[in-house]
């Protein structure tokens, strides 16, 4: 397994020790999971849920939402009514 690639896709900063440990753990876990391949599922369509949920419609009724200040209370950084984040697009 390419643990560096999976860590990057997962957006997880990991130390070298963590990388080694998780690579080993995942190898052991996936080794056990190999038994799944023995199940004959050739005629079984995949089920992403236990139940087939039909799309449900509801009336679009406006309702009160919490005030902006309350919603922003948990933000690690804010500027006025906005979330503040580091630069999104790298400077040339």
């Amino acid at each position: 397994m390419d643990i560096d690639r999976i860590a990057e896709l997962s957006r997880l900063a990991l130390t070298e020790a963590e990388r080694a440990r998780y690579a080993k753990d995942l190898d052991s876990i996936l080794g056990h999971f190999e038994r799944l391949q023995a199940a004959d599922t050739s005629d079984v369509p995949p089920a992403v849920s236990a139940v087939a949920l039909a799309p449900r419609e509801r009336d679009d009724i406006p309702r009160e939402s919490p005030p902006v200040d309350v919603l922003l209370e948990g933000a690690p950084a804010r500027q006025d009514d906005l979330y503040e984040v580091p630069r999104v697009i790298a400077a040339e």
């Binding site: 199940a39 599922t41 089920a47």
Partner: peptide
């Protein structure tokens, strides 16, 4: 998170996530 990301990643999706959804139906 690493395990789930791996199971959904290109090249492994069919062998892991898709297979699991079929086993679930079974």
């Amino acid at each position: 998170i690493l395990l789930g990301t791996y199971a959904l990643s290109a090249g492994y999706y069919d062998a892991y996530y898709r297979k699991a959804t079929q086993a679930r139906a079974l």
